[in-house]
Design a protein around this nucleic acid. Structure first.
Length: 258
DNA sequence: GCGACAG
DNA sequence: ATCTTGTCGC
């Protein structure tokens, strides 16, 4: 049943290690946030972050290898969808914790390539990925993988914590409860190694379950957090949430044909 | 050896 | 990941 051999895992680790050399962990883009512009910038010809992408996959219950991948692009200001595309595929690669990219990245790259190939004006300036960035056993999760291969700034969004470098759910909970009464909505995730791997964010008022933000490619954690906050109407950033909704819808619409 | 383990 | 409406609580 589990067709994953040790040889294949070693190969995957090698791929991650090679791609990781191309990873850029600081801001590397020409746009800026509209909310961070100073008054004098308004008349100047500067590029503002407008088109933010989100990707997600949904799976069929009856055919477990069948999945629908969706790419949406939102206008960051209105959080309205300006582009969406879905692709139904049959996945042959199993899900192995730590190697999500080998299962999901190919079809997501196809969606991005398709958009880029036609020089689409709404091609995302930044992509949010459901799955982690450097918050990962090898420091190279799906968001990094996709970012490097597509050469686009990416942010990783985890809806549950991947236990890595000594990080644990109980530790996160304690850190939130700490800080006396100055209840923070965000805490840095510093592993045993001393490296900051990401941040846990209580993205909506009064929520107790955090999302886990980590950098993917070509962005700093501070800027990534700013953008994630701007994208959150609900707990999960609207980019990821809409990609999730649309991929499920598309899958169900295909089911009704058969 | 055992448990934990993004989606 | 997949199913799933209403409902309980602040």
């Amino acid at each position: 049943m589990n067709s994953t051999t040790p040889e294949l895992l070693n190969e995957w680790i090698e791929v991650q290690s090679k791609l990781k050399r191309k990873l850029v962990t600081e801001d590397d883009f020409t746009w800026k946030l509209a909310s961070k512009m100073r008054g004098g910038d308004e008349g100047e010809s500067c590029e503002v972050l407008k088109y933010v992408g989100g990707v997600d996959l949904s799976f069929s219950k009856e055919e477990q290898s069948v999945a629908c991948a969706t790419l949406v692009v939102l206008d960051l200001k209105s959080l309205e969808i300006v582009y969406q595309d879905s692709l139904v595929v049959r996945l042959s690669v199993p899900y192995v914790p730590g190697f999500l990219a080998f299962r999901e990245a190919p079809v997501l790259l196809e969606l991005l390539d398709k958009m880029k190939a036609c020089s689409h004006p709404f091609y995302p300036q930044l992509l949010m990925v459901d799955g982690n960035g450097i918050l990962h056993p090898q420091g190279f999760g799906l968001a990094c993988h996709l970012g490097v291969l597509a050469n686009i700034p990416t942010i990783g969004i985890g809806k549950s914590l991947h236990h890595v470098d000594g990080l644990s759910k109980s530790m996160v909970r304690e850190l939130f409860e700490m800080d006396g009464n100055s209840s923070q909505d965000i805490i840095p995730l510093v592993g045993d190694s001393g490296q900051t791997l990401g941040a846990a964010l209580l993205s909506t008022r009064g929520s107790s379950k955090p999302i886990y933000v980590s950098i993917g490619h070509r962005i700093s954690l501070a800027v990534a957090i700013d953008i994630v906050k701007l994208s959150c109407k609900y707990r999960v950033p609207e980019t990821i949430r809409q990609a999730d909704i649309k991929s499920r819808q598309h899958l169900h619409s295909c089911r009704s044909i058969h």
